[in-house]
């Protein structure tokens, strides 16, 4: 089947097998390898992307279902060389170690903050329930999301990161 998707601002038209998952289409056909596959039962959330503005696990969507859709991956978040505030907050709060879950975590965090711009700790934990991390114990991820929430507030000053860049 022939489908057309716009991924990170570029439009791609390809023939896909009906059974092809969106995540495989992104990785293998379009080359968006920043989005990764961590499981085969939709538990881990590593493959989370935005489909028409909503976070989805791209292993749970067929490529043909995304025909005509606009998709954003972790590779499409930065603007003019500046990181998205959530990306920056993940770095500033040491919210990643091996980094494999990170693209999915970041995409889900952005979605979470769109729904709830000022989440408390429990709200962040529940909002990220579908994304597994094996390295961090989640504490710095929670901190990063709350930090990002502060950064995204209109007129806010940048929060103080836990580490130093220089």
């Amino acid at each position: 089947m022939r489908i057309t998707v716009t991924v990170d601002g570029t439009t791609y038209t390809d023939d896909v097998e009906p059974r092809q998952l969106l995540v495989h289409h992104l990785r293998e056909t379009i080359g968006k390898t920043g989005t990764v596959v961590g499981c085969d039962t939709s538990n881990c959330g590593s493959c989370t992307v935005h489909l028409d503005g909503q976070s989805v696990k791209s292993c749970s969507v067929l490529a043909v279902q995304a025909d005509g859709a606009e998709i954003t991956t972790v590779e499409g978040l930065a603007r003019d060389g500046a990181l998205h505030p959530v990306q920056q907050a993940f770095h500033d709060n040491h919210a990643l170690q091996c980094g494999f879950c990170t693209p999915g975590m970041i995409m889900q965090s952005i979605d979470l903050l769109a729904d709830n711009p000022d989440p408390d700790e429990q709200a962040v934990r529940h909002g990220l329930e579908g994304n597994l991390c094996r390295c961090t114990g989640y504490q710095n991820i929670v901190r990063a999301v709350q930090d990002a929430a502060d950064r995204l507030k209109p007129g806010s000053t940048q929060a103080q990161p836990v580490g130093s860049e220089s």
Binding site: K32, T33, G34, A78, L83, F90, H91, H94, G99, I106
Partner: peptide, 13 residues
């Protein structure tokens, strides 16, 4: 802050 992060948070892996 870690040098390693720049690639990992942008999907340049």
């Amino acid at each position: 802050l870690r040098k390693e992060d720049a690639r990992l948070i942008t999907g340049r892996t």
